[in-house]
C-alpha cells in the first residue's frame, strides 16, 4: 500500500504540492490526473523519494526513503534516462544486481519479449529511440517485481502495441496485489484500468473518486476532470475532497 499524508513541496516561493493526502490500496490502480503544471510529476518524484518534501509517504508501511521501501517500489520516470554505454540487456543485468534479484534472466526475457525489445538486447541505451527508451525504462522498473509502482506519464511516446501491453501489465500488477499510481493527463489511455482517480489542480487534490462512486453517480472521468480544470466544478478545498 502507498500512503501519502500531508505532502507539501515548495520550490522557493512556488508551492508545487499543497498538503496532498491520499492512499493507494493493495491491488488498486490510482490515476493522478490534472492539467500541465498541476504538480503531478512533482508529487510522483516526492513519492519516489527523489525530492525533499514535508509530510510523510510510506510504501507498505516503510518510509519512502528507507532501503526497505526502495526495495518494494518501481519507478518509471517521465523522461527515460538510459545509460548511453550499456546495452538493453545490461541495463536489466545492472538492475538485477543492484536490486539483488535472483534468477532474473527469465523474468528479463519475458519483459523484453512483451515490450518487443528482444531483438534490441545488444543495442546501446543511447542508440534507442525515445519510445524504446521508455520501454526499457518500464522493463527496469518491473524487473524487481515491486509491490508499488509509480508511473509518470508512462504512455507518452509508446507505440499502440506497447500501450496495450502496458495496460495489461497494470492489470496484472493489480491482480497481483500491487499498488499502482499513474500520473497522466491523457485520460483516454487509462480509462479501462483505473480504480481510483485523483484530480490535481494548482498543486492540490481537487477531487478524489473511486470508479464505483463515479459509476453510481453517472459521472465520467472526463466530465469530472473538465468540471474542475475549467473551473465549473467543485471548489478546491477539503470540503469537496473525499477523504481516502
Amino acid at each position: 500500500m502507498l500512503e501519502i499524508q500531508h505532502l507539501t513541496k515548495k520550490y522557493r516561493k512556488l508551492l508545487a504540492n499543497d498538503d496532498l493526502s491520499f492512499r493507494v490500496q493493495d491491488g488498486e490502480v490510482a490515476v493522478l490526473a490534472g492539467p500541465n503544471g498541476a504538480g503531478k510529476s512533482t508529487a510522483i518524484k516526492c513519492i519516489a523519494g527523489l525530492l525533499r518534501f514535508q509530510g510523510s509517504v510510506t510504501v507498505c508501511g516503510h518510509p519512502n526513503k528507507s532501503v526497505e521501501a526502495k526495495r518494494l517500489f518501481g519507478y518509471i520516470p517521465e523522461i527515460p534516462a538510459p545509460m548511453e554505454s550499456l546495452t538493453v540487456r545490461e541495463h536489466l543485468e545492472f538492475i538485477a544486481r543492484a536490486y539483488r534479484v535472483e534468477d532474473w534472466q527469465k523474468k528479463a526475457d519475458v519483459l523484453l519479449e512483451r515490450l518487443e525489445l528482444e531483438d534490441k538486447q545488444k543495442k546501446l541505451g543511447g542508440e534507442l529511440s525515445k519510445g524504446m527508451q521508455q520501454k526499457l525504462s518500464i522493463c527496469c522498473a518491473l524487473l524487481p517485481e515491486p509491490k508499488a509502482v509509480l508511473l509518470d506519464e508512462p504512455l507518452v511516446g509508446l507505440d499502440p502495441h506497447a500501450i496495450k501491453e502496458l495496460r495489461e501489465m497494470m492489470e496484472e500488477l493489480r491482480a497481483r496485489g500491487c499498488s499502482v499510481l499513474v500520473s497522466t493527463h491523457m485520460l483516454d489511455t487509462v480509462r479501462q484500468v483505473w480504480d481510483r482517480a485523483l484530480i490535481m489542480m494548482n498543486g492540490k487534490i481537487a477531487a478524489e473518486r473511486t470508479r464505483r462512486e463515479m459509476e453510481t453517480g453517472g459521472e465520467s472521468l472526463e466530465q469530472l476532470f473538465f468540471s474542475i480544470t475549467e473551473g465549473k466544478g467543485e471548489e478546491l478545498g477539503s470540503d469537496s475532497v473525499h477523504s481516502a
Binding site: E84, E90, E93
Partner: peptide, 17 residues
C-alpha cells in the same frame, strides 16, 4: 540533467556486467 549519446557507432564488443 540527462545524458545524450553524441558519439556514433560505439562498438559494443563483449556484453555483460
Amino acid at each position: 540533467k540527462r545524458g545524450i549519446n553524441v558519439g556514433r557507432g560505439k562498438k559494443v564488443g563483449s556484453t555483460g556486467i
